[in-house]
Simulated assay, not measured.
Amino acid sequence: MNLLTEREREVLLHLGTGAGNRELAGELGIAERTVKAHIQRIVMKLDQNSRLEAAVLSVLAHHLLCSDPHCTRCAAGAAHARRTGAPLLTM
């Protein structure tokens, strides 16, 4: 994750929602072609084979990407790890 720019991390976080390029562009206030370029660089930098793999990684690493202290997804992931003893994904 450290290889990504702040904007790429933001795009990756949103990619994990399953939104399409047009939706991502609207949410982020950027052009659709810019979203495509960010996703292409994210896939390359994270050594993934596809957008889908990057999206799955986004879901698994949500707690690393999200800076919202009130995010319920981050809290749920941490609580699950404590309950099950499963390690949180770190990069």
Rank of each mutant, 00 (worst) to 15 (best):
Leu3Cys: 11
Leu3Met: 11
Leu4His: 04
Leu4Gln: 03
Thr5Trp: 00
Glu6Ser: 14
Arg7His: 07
Glu8Gln: 15
Glu8Trp: 03
Arg9Ile: 06
Glu10Asp: 14
Glu10Met: 11
Glu10Lys: 12
Val11Gly: 07
Leu12Met: 06
Leu13Thr: 07
Leu13Trp: 07
Leu13Pro: 03
His14Asp: 14
Leu15Asn: 07
Thr17Trp: 05
Thr17Glu: 12
Gly18Asn: 05
Gly18Val: 04
Gly18Glu: 10
Ala19Arg: 12
Ala19Cys: 13
Gly20Pro: 09
Asn21Ala: 14
Asn21Cys: 10
Arg22Ser: 10
Glu23Phe: 12
Leu24Asp: 05
Leu24Pro: 02
Gly26Ala: 12
Gly26Asn: 13
Leu28Arg: 02
Gly29Trp: 04
Gly29Asn: 02
Gly29Ala: 00
Ile30Leu: 06
Ile30Gly: 03
Ala31Met: 10
Glu32Ile: 11
Thr34Asn: 05
Thr34Asp: 11
Thr34Gln: 08
Lys36Glu: 07
Ala37Cys: 06
Ala37Lys: 12
His38Gln: 09
His38Ala: 06
Ile39Arg: 00
Arg41Glu: 15
Ile42Thr: 02
Val43Asn: 03
Val43Arg: 08
Lys45Glu: 15
Leu46His: 00
Asp47Thr: 14
Asp47Leu: 14
Asp47Arg: 13
Gln48Gly: 09
Asn49Lys: 09
Asn49Val: 13
Ser50Asp: 07
Ser50Ala: 08
Arg51Lys: 15
Glu53Phe: 12
Glu53Trp: 12
Ala54Tyr: 04
Ala55Tyr: 08
Val56Lys: 13
Val56Asn: 09
Leu57Glu: 10
Leu57Lys: 06
Ser58Ile: 11
Ser58Thr: 08
Ser58Asp: 09
Ser58Phe: 03
Ser58Gly: 14
Leu60Ala: 13
Ala61Tyr: 04
Ala61Asn: 07
Ala61Pro: 01
His62Pro: 03
His62Gln: 07
His62Ala: 02
His62Val: 00
His63Ile: 05
His63Gln: 05
Leu65Ser: 02
Leu65Tyr: 09
Leu65Phe: 06
Cys66Ala: 01
Ser67Lys: 15
Ser67Tyr: 00
Ser67Glu: 14
Asp68Arg: 04
Asp68Asn: 10
Asp68Thr: 05
Asp68Trp: 02
Pro69Arg: 04
Pro69Gly: 11
Thr72Gly: 12
Arg73Glu: 01
Cys74Tyr: 06
Cys74Arg: 08
Ala75Pro: 09
Ala76Arg: 10
Ala76Ser: 13
Gly77Ala: 11
Gly77Phe: 09
Gly77Arg: 10
Ala78Asn: 13
Ala78Val: 14
Ala78His: 15
Ala79Arg: 12
Ala79Gln: 09
Ala79Ile: 02
His80Gln: 12
Ala81Ser: 09
Ala81His: 01
Arg82Cys: 10
Arg82Glu: 15
Arg83Ile: 14
Thr84Met: 04
Gly85Val: 02
Gly85Phe: 05
Gly85Trp: 05
Gly85Met: 06
Ala86Trp: 01
Ala86Ser: 06
Ala86Phe: 00
Ala86Val: 07
Ala86Thr: 09
Ala86Leu: 08
Ala86Lys: 04
Pro87Phe: 13
Leu88Ala: 01
Leu88Val: 03
Leu88Met: 07
Leu88Thr: 03
Thr90Met: 13
Thr90Ser: 14
Met91Asp: 10
